[in-house]
C-alpha cells in the first residue's frame, strides 16, 4: 500500500516523531550543560545533577513521590486483580456498570477528579476528623490508577482459554484452588505490567497531587512546578530528566514482562 500514498506522508511521519521527541531530547541534552543558559551549550557537566540530588526539597519530594506511588501501586494492583477475577464470571450488564465506575477517572477531566477528591477529604476531615496524611494522597492515587492497572490484567485474562478453568474444576480443584493455581500464575505477567503502569501513572501525576497535597506532602511534579516561580536554571532540567528516566525504566519493565510471558507460555495450538 505504501507506493500508493503521497510521498509527503513519510515526511510528516518523520516530522511528528521529531516533534514528539525534540523537546524531551533538548531538555535532556541541556541537563548536561555546564553553563546556565538554555540556548548556549558550554560543554558537558554533571553538576546540575549533583545540585538536584543535593537539593533537600528535591530529595524530600522524591521520597514522597516514591512512597505515594508505591502505596498506590500496591493498593491499585491488588484491587484491580480482585476486580478482574471477580468480574470475569459476571453478566455483561454488571461488567459494564462496574467498568464504567472504575473507569470514571479516564473520562472525567483530571482537574474535576482532583477537585472532587479534595472536597471529599475536606468533608471527611470536617465531619469525622479523619485525616490519613499522606494516606489521603495514596488513596486518591489508587483510585485513579485502578483503571490503568486493570487494563493489562484484563488483556491477560482474555488470553486464558476458558476450557482450562473447566478442566481444572474437572480435576477436583475448588474455586479457590482455581484462582490460586491457575488464574494467578497465568495472570502474573499482566499483574506485573499493571503494577508498572499504575506506578508510572501515580509517579507522573500533577493535578491530583497539587490540589490535594498539604505541607510536607509535596511530590516531585509539584516540586518541579514550584521551581518555575524562581529564575530557571538547568537544575530543573536535571530534575525533570531524572523523572523521565524513572518513567522510561518502568515502561520498559512493563513491556519486558508482557514479552517474556508470551515467550515462555508460547502458542498452544492443538
Amino acid at each position: 500500500m505504501q507506493r500508493h500514498l503521497p510521498r509527503a506522508f513519510g515526511l510528516v511521519a518523520g516530522a511528528s516523531l521529531l516533534f514528539l521527541y525534540a523537546p524531551i531530547l533538548v531538555l535532556g541534552v541541556f541537563s548536561f550543560n555546564s553553563g546556565r543558559l538554555f540556548h548556549r551549550w558550554e560543554g558537558g557537566s554533571l553538576h546540575w545533577y549533583a545540585k538536584a540530588l543535593a537539593n533537600e526539597g528535591f530529595r524530600g519530594a522524591a521520597v514522597n513521590s516514591l512512597a505515594v506511588a508505591l502505596g498506590a501501586t500496591l493498593l491499585a494492583t491488588f484491587l484491580a486483580t480482585g476486580a478482574v477475577i471477580g468480574l470475569h464470571r459476571a453478566g455483561a450488564r454488571q461488567q459494564g456498570i462496574a467498568l464504567a465506575l472504575i473507569g470514571l477517572p479516564l473520562v472525567v477531566p483530571e482537574v474535576v477528579m482532583a477537585v472532587a477528591t479534595l472536597i471529599f477529604f475536606s468533608l471527611l476531615r470536617g465531619a469525622t476528623g479523619l485525616d490519613f496524611g499522606l494516606g489521603n494522597l495514596i488513596l486518591a492515587h489508587a483510585a485513579f490508577c485502578l483503571p490503568f492497572a486493570m487494563m493489562p490484567i484484563r488483556a491477560a485474562l482474555r488470553g486464558v482459554e476458558p476450557a482450562i478453568l473447566t478442566v481444572a474444576a474437572d480435576l477436583y480443584a475448588s474455586e479457590g484452588a482455581i484462582v490460586r493455581h491457575i488464574l494467578l500464575p497465568l495472570l502474573a505477567p499482566g499483574i506485573g505490567s499493571g503494577a508498572a503502569l499504575a506506578f508510572i501513572t501515580s509517579f507522573d501525576d500533577f493535578a491530583m497531587s497539587q490540589l490535594l497535597a498539604g505541607p510536607g506532602q509535596t511530590t516531585l511534579p509539584v516540586f518541579i512546578w514550584a521551581q518555575l516561580r524562581r529564575p530557571l536554571t538547568p537544575e530543573v532540567n536535571a530534575m525533570s530528566a531524572i523523572m523521565l528516566a524513572v518513567s522510561a525504566a518502568f515502561i520498559c519493565l512493563a513491556l519486558a514482562m508482557v514479552a517474556r510471558a508470551r515467550f515462555t507460555n508460547g502458542p498452544c495450538d492443538p
Binding site: 482459554e161 476450557a163 482450562i164 473447566t166 478442566v167 481444572a168 474444576a169 474437572d170 480435576l171 477436583y172 480443584a173 475448588s174 491457575i182 497465568l186 507460555n265 508460547g266 498452544c268 492443538p270
Partner: peptide, 16 residues
Amino acid sequence: ARRPVNTVFQNYALFP
C-alpha cells in the same frame, strides 16, 4: 469437582 469422573477435551486445554 467432586465427581470421580474426568474428561479429555477436544482441544486438550493443557495448562500453559
